[in-house]
Amino acid sequence: MSTVDRALVRDVAAIAAAAGVVGVSFGAIAVAAGVSVWLASAMSMLVFAGGSQFMVVGVVAGGGSPVAAVLAGLLLNARHLPFGMVVSDVLGRSWPMRLIGTHLMVDESVAFALAQQDPAKRRAAYWLCGGTLFVSWNIGVLVGALAGRALGNPDALGLDAAFPAAMFALLLPSLRASADTAESKRAAAVARKVALLGAAIALVTTPFLPAGLPVLLALLGLSVALR
């Protein structure tokens, strides 16, 4: 454990605490949408990808079909494919460990791994972050699902506002230049255009289309990046 330094543990703890809070809101929202406590927990352990879980519950709660919900969730999770190509070296050599490590692949664990140069530290950061998030996320979901039912209406707590705000905070780093270079600024500008156009397409089509489809149509926002 000598490769796990104190700063890494502190940063992972902060992210894990935040994930726990979002997990609580997911549990409460899922229960409010008619998902049972055990199904919300099972989904969180088996899928372990917050954005897609919120999307599936949101589509179903909004009256969409489960098929559209799963397709929308899968589309959202397609980004794990390039992620996996980036972090495949940290997963280890033995196949049982590789298969476990694969399940811990989330935005945060990938980002933590990328921030480290040394291979041993890369591996430590990925596993510490992924493992801690798995625990805090699932505990949070269970607590939220149980409390949400006791509280009756999570909207009274404003939890429906917490989720979009959290997603926005997670999106922000992608929409800002990561370095003071022309290349980085140009990439961030393209990302902002794609984000704005995608959001606008989804908003404009929401009154006319079945739930879930407007979010998929947001992919047309990519057109500004293809020119």
């Binding site: 949101g58 997603m167 997670l170 984000a195 704005l196 995608g198 959001a199 908003l203 947001a218």
Partner: peptide
């Protein structure tokens, strides 16, 4: 990014 932005907006 496009999907998540659309999700935030809606």
């Amino acid at each position: 990014i496009a999907l998540l932005s659309a999700l935030v907006a809606t």
